[in-house]
């Protein structure tokens, strides 16, 4: 079953001056349970593509349909709500809330969703255990390493039970050991819980772990390989 359907997607920046075709006619689909890497040189359009899939940016042309809903057609409030319920985000810079502990960071989105305390506590514990941080549950981000922070970010992305997770260069700020560790955790979640991950990367080791590698250049898909 396809969870994401992308058809003839275009994105032009600076339409008046010198137009930049950041995404130039991409048609792609993703199935539930994929572990897919998007690779390509710098400026090839990876971030732009992920942002449009995540509904953070609007395409100039084309559609992104998620589970039957054309996200780029949703209005502001509905789209935010849709993101909250369906999409998990992991960012390159972790972007944890510094005043919150690991637990509170993970819990936050469940607060936004209006989940009750029991459910929040249970899920937060499960998730932080799953990313190997059960013992750091009450630590603030400044007491955690980069790798640990990114693992909290993965737990946070999963907290809302999204249909898939988008991660733009999640390992770019991590050393090789933390990268490997994070990848192991993501892979395990993917294999055991069938969680869909779509991530962009420059890192060959990350690419090696992916089961599908989509290469884009100048905003277009040049290869799409399933292993």
């Amino acid at each position: 079953m396809n969870i994401i359907e992308i058809t003839d997607l275009h994105k032009v920046y600076d339409q008046e001056a010198v137009p930049v075709w950041a995404v130039n006619g991409i048609t792609l689909s993703f199935e539930v349970g994929e572990f897919a890497a998007i690779v390509g040189p710098s400026g090839s359009g990876k971030t732009t593509l992920l942002n449009i899939i995540g509904g953070l940016d609007d395409p100039t042309k084309g559609n992104v349909v998620i589970d039957g809903v054309t996200i780029n057609k949703l209005g502001g409030r509905q789209r935010t709500d849709f993101r909250m319920k369906n999409i998990g985000f992991v960012f390159q810079a972790y972007n944890l809330i510094p005043v919150f502990t690991a637990r509170e960071n993970v819990e936050f989105i469940m607060h936004l969703q209006g989940k009750n305390k029991n459910e929040r506590d249970k899920r937060t514990k499960e998730l932080l255990e799953a990313v190997g941080l059960a013992d750091r549950i009450d630590s603030r981000p400044n007491k955690l390493s980069g790798g640990q922070q990114q693992r909290v970010a993965v737990a946070r992305a999963l907290a809302s039970k999204p249909k898939f997770i988008l991660a733009d260069e999640p390992t770019a700020n991590l050393d090789s050991k933390s990268t490997e560790n994070l990848l192991d955790i993501m892979e395990k979640l993917n294999r055991n819980e069938n969680i869909t991950f779509i991530f962009s990367t420059h890192d060959q080791r990350v690419v090696n772990k992916a089961r599908r590698v989509i290469t884009i250049e100048d905003g277009a898909v040049v290869s799409d390989i399933r292993k």
């Binding site: 709500d81 993101r83 909250m84 319920k85 985000f89 960012f91 972007n95 989105i109 936004l112």
Partner: peptide, 8 residues
């Protein structure tokens, strides 16, 4: 980030 993850 907050807006991205669903804070309206």
């Amino acid at each position: 980030m907050l807006m991205a993850i669903g804070m309206d």
